[in-house]
């Protein structure tokens, strides 16, 4: 097993992660990120994976796709979500999205739209029976 990064190294790795968190929608590459951490590229990749379990490129891609999910939840179109999280084309975005979530962005958006509508029309379907009863909303059947 490799030795752990020393305490001061954590700050630099975390700073690089926070840079990705903040600027994930821009064209940021590995060199820029490792420069932020003031490491050589290969050393940075190794330390980042040690701390976060994935290499920076995968972390950045997952970050973009997670944010895309949130945007789709909020009603963004697929094309808009794609551009806003930094993908250059919808087909590339859709393939990456499907790899991560198992479904296409369009299908995901449709399911979430239906859920949001159902939440408005049948709110009690989304609150556990026991909580609803306890909170004084006892109209549900089959209390849980």
């Amino acid at each position: 097993m490799e030795p752990y990064p020393k305490a001061y190294l954590y700050k630099r790795i975390v700073q690089a992660k926070l840079l990705m968190d903040e600027r994930f929608m821009e064209r940021i590459d590995g060199e820029l990120i490792s420069n932020e951490a003031a490491f050589s590229h290969s050393h940075f990749i190794r330390l980042f994976k040690q701390v976060y379990g994935v290499v920076p490129r995968v972390y950045l891609s997952n970050l973009r796709l997670d944010r895309a999910q949130q945007l789709l939840d909020e009603g963004c179109s697929v094309a808009d979500a794609c551009l806003r999280v930094g993908f250059e084309s919808v087909p590339t975005f859709s393939r990456a999205f499907k790899r991560r979530t198992g479904t296409t962005p369009a299908a995901y958006r449709k399911v979430r739209e239906e859920r949001a509508r159902n939440m408005q029309e049948e709110p009690l379907e989304h609150i556990p029976n026991c909580y609803a009863m306890w909170l004084g909303w006892p109209q549900k059947r089959d209390p849980g």
Binding site: Q70, H126, W137
Partner: peptide, 15 residues
């Protein structure tokens, strides 16, 4: 964390 459910409830409450 991720937001899961956000529903207005009776009496000004919010799930």
């Amino acid at each position: 964390f991720k937001k899961h459910t956000d529903i207005p409830m009776h009496g000004g409450g919010r799930w």
